[in-house]
Simulated scan of single mutants.
Amino acid sequence: MYIIDFENIDVGYDERIILKDINLKIKDKEHFAILGANGSGKSTLMKLIQSQIHPRHTKEFKKEIFGKSRYSIFELRCNLGIITNDLHNYFEKEADYMSGFEVVLSGFYSSIGIFTHQDFTKEQIIKALEVIDYLEINDLKDKKVSAMSTGQLRKCIVARALIHDPKAFVLDEPTVGLDIKAQINFIKILRKLSLKATIILVTHHLEEIFEEIKNVALIHNNTIYKVGKKEDILTSENLSQIFDTQLKVKEKNKRYFIEEII
């Protein structure tokens, strides 16, 4: 089954086209990185995957998620674990009174906060505790968001998404704001999640592309410039093109990095 099956899609706002001729297929359990410069359209692609925006109907296209062209947003949210900086910032600013456990529990209703009209079953509470234990964040269960570091809150938000056992996780530049230690720890969590679900990582940092990610799509000139196996796509030539500067790409221990700017 394809998690994502997009063909010939244009998207934009008002009269302005942001992405054009988008063709992208991601299979179940096939881990993908979507790489592009700032302003290349990565965030727009994220919104397309989440069905926050929709293709233009000016030409024939195909847009299927989990093999369906029609689906409820709630169904989509259960099957897609979305981790964005916008969601993180919203919890940080609007829900700093919540505990880590409450952040995780809120995933059952996709809400920011826990409300009196929301009833949680014994099974749901057990599931939240199991997820916390699986991600090894028991130390955050009773900690308030206001007292958490950026990395700690990010882990709780991942746990919130994991509550539905999604088939795929979509992560938008997930290590932004994390220090080096927190980045390393967070990548370890992503590698653990890759054993359970498809990982779709949207980034402009090569260092975030961990070993289990085998496929890469490059966004450039408002479209998907190239897509394929990681070793074929992450070349000096390709990355120099999409970042508009001369780069030298190196690989060591199945991880890629920029050795120097030429």
Rank of each mutant, 00 (worst) to 15 (best):
residue 50 Q to A: 04
residue 37 A to E: 03
residue 77 R to W: 13
residue 72 S to W: 12
residue 21 D to I: 07
residue 25 K to M: 11
residue 16 R to L: 14
residue 58 T to L: 07
residue 86 D to Y: 11
residue 80 L to I: 15
residue 41 G to C: 00
residue 62 K to P: 13
residue 67 G to E: 12
residue 50 Q to C: 06
residue 30 E to N: 03
residue 30 E to I: 05
residue 30 E to S: 11
residue 18 I to V: 10
residue 44 T to S: 09
residue 28 D to M: 13
residue 50 Q to L: 05
residue 76 L to A: 00
residue 26 I to N: 04
residue 52 Q to D: 03
residue 22 I to Q: 03
residue 50 Q to W: 15
residue 25 K to N: 12
residue 34 I to M: 09
residue 35 L to H: 02
residue 43 S to W: 00
residue 37 A to T: 06
residue 36 G to K: 06
residue 49 I to H: 06
residue 58 T to W: 08
residue 70 R to H: 15
residue 23 N to D: 13
residue 65 I to E: 01
residue 68 K to G: 08
residue 50 Q to V: 05
residue 35 L to M: 06
residue 25 K to V: 05
residue 68 K to I: 13
residue 49 I to D: 04
residue 44 T to N: 01
residue 51 S to V: 03
residue 56 R to V: 06
residue 20 K to Y: 15
residue 26 I to M: 10
residue 34 I to A: 03
residue 22 I to F: 10
residue 45 L to T: 09
residue 34 I to F: 04
residue 63 K to A: 10
residue 58 T to Y: 13
residue 58 T to H: 04
residue 75 E to I: 12
residue 86 D to T: 00
residue 80 L to C: 02
residue 76 L to R: 02
residue 54 H to D: 06
residue 74 F to G: 04
residue 80 L to P: 07
residue 18 I to M: 03
residue 48 L to N: 01
residue 35 L to N: 02
residue 61 F to N: 14
residue 74 F to Q: 15
residue 43 S to G: 08
residue 75 E to P: 13
residue 73 I to L: 08
residue 71 Y to E: 09
residue 86 D to H: 00
residue 66 F to L: 03
residue 83 I to A: 06
residue 72 S to A: 12
residue 83 I to S: 09
residue 58 T to R: 14
residue 36 G to I: 10
residue 71 Y to A: 07
residue 64 E to R: 10
residue 76 L to W: 03
residue 26 I to C: 08
residue 53 I to C: 10
residue 68 K to D: 05
residue 31 H to M: 08
residue 43 S to L: 09
residue 68 K to V: 02
residue 67 G to N: 01
residue 40 S to G: 03
residue 74 F to C: 14
residue 52 Q to P: 00
residue 24 L to K: 02
residue 59 K to T: 15
residue 24 L to V: 11
residue 74 F to M: 15
residue 63 K to Q: 14
residue 34 I to L: 11
residue 72 S to D: 12
residue 53 I to W: 12
residue 44 T to Q: 00
residue 28 D to T: 10
residue 84 T to N: 05
residue 18 I to E: 00
residue 39 G to Q: 14
residue 73 I to C: 07
residue 77 R to I: 07
residue 74 F to N: 15
residue 82 I to Q: 05
residue 58 T to Q: 03
residue 17 I to Q: 06
residue 15 E to L: 11
residue 26 I to W: 10
residue 72 S to P: 04
residue 81 G to M: 10
residue 23 N to M: 11
residue 58 T to V: 08
residue 43 S to N: 04
residue 69 S to G: 12
residue 51 S to Y: 05
residue 63 K to Y: 11
residue 67 G to P: 01
residue 64 E to I: 13
residue 71 Y to P: 09
residue 17 I to M: 08
residue 73 I to K: 12
residue 57 H to F: 15
residue 27 K to D: 12
residue 15 E to W: 05
residue 55 P to T: 01
residue 66 F to D: 07
residue 55 P to E: 04
residue 72 S to M: 00
residue 46 M to N: 02
residue 18 I to R: 00
residue 67 G to Q: 13
residue 75 E to W: 12
residue 27 K to H: 11
residue 33 A to N: 05
residue 85 N to Y: 06
residue 21 D to W: 07
residue 56 R to G: 11
residue 25 K to P: 12
residue 85 N to W: 05
residue 25 K to E: 04
residue 62 K to D: 01
